[in-house]
Design a protein around this nucleic acid. Structure first.
Lengths: 111, 111
DNA sequence: ATAAAATATTCCTTTACAGGAATATTCCTT
DNA sequence: AAGGAATATTCCTGTAAAGGAATATTTTAT
């Protein structure tokens, strides 16, 4: 997993932007107004999101329309998939591990 | 989505810890040794992960065994699900939005 | 009781990053 | 060509957080 994706999403305002764009593309002004943040901050956050590949901009004359890109979400989904058996099968129980530890202790007594 | 989960995962060393624990529970020392980080840093990172609910500790005498908790991953999965149609259906095309914008422009001319 | 192992905590320093305010840039309109 | 919108960038400041080093804490072993 790429930490740039995660750290981009970890900032509250940016996460809100992403959740807002989930409903569809928006201009910078609309984003700033909806989220009650100043326009420069909106632009800065969109820059970070853009550099992380989470968002893409299309110029429409004066304005820039931002929309979500799908790739980072697909990546996140793939990454999460590798954890799915953690809550489905629960193979690696703590009990098993305790036994492993005890075996180690026993073998150390012989050294 | 909770940003504490995301920001906890956004730090590279912590993400590595999580990916390591995916294979099963481990002690602090094992984690530190495997990831080539100093023990205090490992403890600190595990603390953050614990406060985010990503990890749980079970005492075994001297050592503490850390393992992943499933809840945050389930949460992440649910959150991601709400984005799935973004890359599956792609309802909110940019073209549609451009038309909306143009309508707004036209209506403003009348004001 | 003492020493040693495993882990947690504290203090310090440095760095990254977010917000505010001002300004630059780009494009449209007239 | 000039003014105005929409957006981006820059500079500054404050703050949070990460790493290093030292130390505290807890538990075991002798």
């Amino acid at each position: 997993m790429d930490t740039t994706t995660l750290s981009a999403l970890a900032e509250p305002n940016r996460l809100q932007i992403v959740e807002l764009l989930r409903e569809g593309p928006l201009t910078v002004g609309e984003i700033a107004e909806t989220l009650q943040i100043r326009q420069p901050q909106a632009s800065k956050h969109l820059r970070v999101l853009g550099e992380a590949g989470i968002v893409a901009a299309h110029a429409d004359a004066n304005r820039r329309i931002y929309q979500l890109r799908k790739e980072p979400f697909i990546q996140l989904d793939k990454w999460l998939a590798s954890y799915r058996n953690i809550w489905e099968e629960r193979l690696d129980s703590l009990d098993d591990y305790l036994k492993v530890l005890q075996k180690k202790d026993e073998s150390q007594k012989d050294e």
